[in-house]
Nucleic acid binder design. Structure first.
Ligand SMILES: [Mn+2]
Ligand SMILES: [Mn+2]
Ligand SMILES: [Zn+2]
Ligand SMILES: [Zn+2]
Lengths: 145, 145
DNA sequence: TCAATATTTTAGAACGATTCTAAGGAGTTG
DNA sequence: CAACTCCTTAGAATCGTTCTAAAATATTGA
């Protein structure tokens, strides 16, 4: 799940189309453009607005509504996950595995915390009638000085 | 009995007025009403909307804008802290010490996890030029069944 | 291939939480 | 009380996001 190089090399349009089909999504021009931006290279943390700008920058023409639709469809298909670290905007993460985040508050950027080295001990059992869906750690960072 | 109770209540109010003065905030009717709701009993996690409803329920009459203003003033004074667990609304926490949270996603409720019991190991050093402002753990819970 | 059908895209309106504006109200000081 | 400063508030504005419904596109199968 973390062989970045071979993933980048093998992230061809055909794979993307297969990925979309497997998710029950038609491989439209818009979804392919967004899929390339999201899945072609290394892992990304994007907002809808920023992904829309990326698409525009690359010459793809699609509406912001489509970016929102697509991000949610990808999330429902398990291709993305949401990360909530800021009340103003929602981040979408191409890394769907178990991991945690640094959040650079002044720049509004997310970064994965490398490795599975993070261990959390001493968590109490969840209250009766509930179960843990996910444990999230966010390390909020500020610039020094 | 009754005199004990009213003494306790007025002692609380005196504390509250002192607390506001120490924060450089005039003890207005609105701030005292909200301060009572927030600080009189046990720790609370509230949204602006919910605190406004609480105030209305208790007979205090103030605008939602004032609730927002007051929550931010209290936060800037270190009397509250913000907790971000939901993209839709902001929670304010009367517990300003180091601690973590259960989040009951389907009910939109927060509960404290005492900070002393939770240990986080294996966090990497923050990137150069940054420092940790806070480490937050959120345990997202869903109802079983 | 080519219509019939199902899904997708999109512009623009709507929404909901939050913030802003600016004018009147209230706390403080002497 | 007067003078001053700070506070409250209704309503407008903002902003990220969702909704609507009509036009566009993908898929199916004859
Ligand atoms: Mn972004
Ligand atoms: Mn609440
Ligand atoms: Zn991530
Ligand atoms: Zn708390």
């Amino acid at each position: 799940m973390r062989s970045t190089v071979s993933k980048a090399v093998s992230a061809h349009k055909g794979d993307l189309v297969a990925k979309l089909r497997a998710a029950g999504l038609r491989p439209t021009r818009q979804r392919i453009a967004l899929g390339k931006l999201l899945f072609a290279d290394c892992d990304r943390h994007v907002t809808a607005e920023c992904l829309h700008q990326d698409a525009t920058r690359v010459g793809a023409s699609l509406s912001l509504a489509t970016v929102y639709n697509t991000l949610h469809q990808f999330t429902n298909a398990g291709l993305l996950r949401q990360v909530i670290v800021d009340g103003e905007k929602t981040y979408f993460d191409t890394n769907t595995g178990d991991h945690h985040h640094f959040y650079f508050e002044d720049r509004g950027l997310l970064a994965d915390i490398p490795g599975d080295d993070v261990r959390i001990d001493g968590l109490p059992k969840p209250p009766a009638g509930t179960e843990i869906e996910r444990v999230e750690v966010v390390v909020r960072l500020k610039s020094r000085d």
